[in-house]
Write a protein that binds this DNA or RNA. Sequence first.
DNA 1: CGGGAATATGCCCTGCAAGGCATACTCGGA
DNA 2: TCCGAGTATGCCTTGCAGGGCATATTCCCG
Lengths: 115, 115
Amino acid sequence: MASLAPPDLLAVLADPTRRRLLDLLLDGPRPVGELVGELGASQPSTSKHLRVLREAGLVHVHPDAQRRVYALRPQRLAELDAWLAPYRRLWEGRLDALEAHLDAHPDPEPRRSSR
Amino acid sequence: MASLAPPDLLAVLADPTRRRLLDLLLDGPRPVGELVGELGASQPSTSKHLRVLREAGLVHVHPDAQRRVYALRPQRLAELDAWLAPYRRLWEGRLDALEAHLDAHPDPEPRRSSR
DNA sequence: CGGGAATATGCCCTGCAAGGCATACTCGGA
DNA sequence: TCCGAGTATGCCTTGCAGGGCATATTCCCG
């Protein structure tokens, strides 16, 4: 089951600027102008990033006169959370002990080259 | 080599091939050869991706003769989980009302002239 | 109506990441 | 000691993402 429908999501989140945008939106919806200000990026650049976020379903826009108020849309991130699930079991469980063990022994008992 | 100051974790995960590698490793540690086989990618390419994963702290290598057995290292993913936390609260909680509201406004139409 | 504010788009340019190929390296076994 | 299996690396090329700039677009207001 491809819990992570569009691999896009991770790719979209790969950009620090976009993550910063999401962070800013954590405080609540904001018009582009404000985002531009706090971001320090140019307005066109910001708009483009917002578009990417919008197309990824990570934000939502709500027109207010000539303004566009962007708001967070966290649902999509639930998919990321789902993708993470199988791994979470690993880092949460006692497997960590095994991991630590391996980490401490870069070169344990050599095995036979049997296949 | 900075183990504690990894390259953008999300940037590393942005690559589908690398995610596929992680997925494969969910089943347990494997030598490069096997990974190459199941991945369908070339050996050099696979090795490069593994390197990126390794430098990001997402996998761990354990030499076995001329083989390199790669294993998952989920800890780093916990960071991603942590990053996700503030958003999780949103999609899990009381924001449902807002979401419902947003749902009533199909916004993702770029071209909308019916005003 | 015209002007101006707020935002989106299109185009161009640059840097970087990913793939392919050949090759260097490192073991273990005969 | 030499050979071959298994893996890493270096170099080159290409496609694409992101930034900047100018401009189109859409709206409010006087």
